[in-house]
Design a protein around this nucleic acid. Structure first.
Length: 162
DNA sequence: GCCAACGTTGGC
DNA sequence: GCCAACGTTGGC
């Protein structure tokens, strides 16, 4: 685990996964921007808290979808701040170990950039020779927020124009 | 709906 | 500190 973690390179480019049944790129297009609450994984949290910068580019990915795949582009429009949903006992993202005095979780805001004409299915990403190293394509990868290479970002951007 | 892979929890 | 049990993720 630690060895794998060490090889992660922070690039300022990101891929963020969301189930479209919960929140889709179309929702983001409608809203213009949104808060990214509910991340309850420490590694993903640390990416947001320690590394996400204003205007970092984001690939918006639909997970658990038919088909799963890259759905569009977004941009970080507010850097990390406490996830207040974590201390609301009636909310599904409640965590009893988090409090306003000692917030355990953070969120960022992202702004809509573009919605791809069609989803770029995961299989298309898998088939692309220059996207082989995408973290989300590695076996067993479940991280909802992963850094990606600028080159990978631009390839996905291009695929989204087709 | 299945299930492999993962992260977290808690007993010891 | 180990590790079994558990809940979750997410592609298929």
């Amino acid at each position: 685990m630690d060895t794998a973690r060490q090889s992660i390179r922070i690039t300022g480019y990101w891929l963020m996964k969301c189930e479209p049944d919960v929140y889709s790129i179309s929702n983001l297009e409608t809203d213009g921007s949104t808060s990214w609450e509910g991340v309850r994984n420490y590694q993903a949290r640390n990416f947001m808290r320690d590394h996400m910068k204003l205007n970092d580019p984001v690939v918006f990915y639909h997970s658990n979808a038919k088909p799963p795949g890259a759905a569009g582009l977004a941009r970080v429009c507010k850097t990390a701040y406490p996830d207040h949903f974590s201390w609301n006992p009636t909310h599904r993202y409640f965590d009893p170990q988090s409090s306003p005095e000692d917030p355990r979780w953070v969120m960022v805001d992202i702004a809509f950039e573009q919605k791809f004409k069609t989803i770029i299915p995961i299989q298309t990403l898998r088939d692309h020779p220059e996207l082989q190293n995408l973290m989300i394509l590695q076996k067993g990868s479940r991280l909802s927020i992963t850094p990606i290479d600028p080159h990978e970002y631009h390839i996905i951007h291009q695929l989204g124009l087709e």
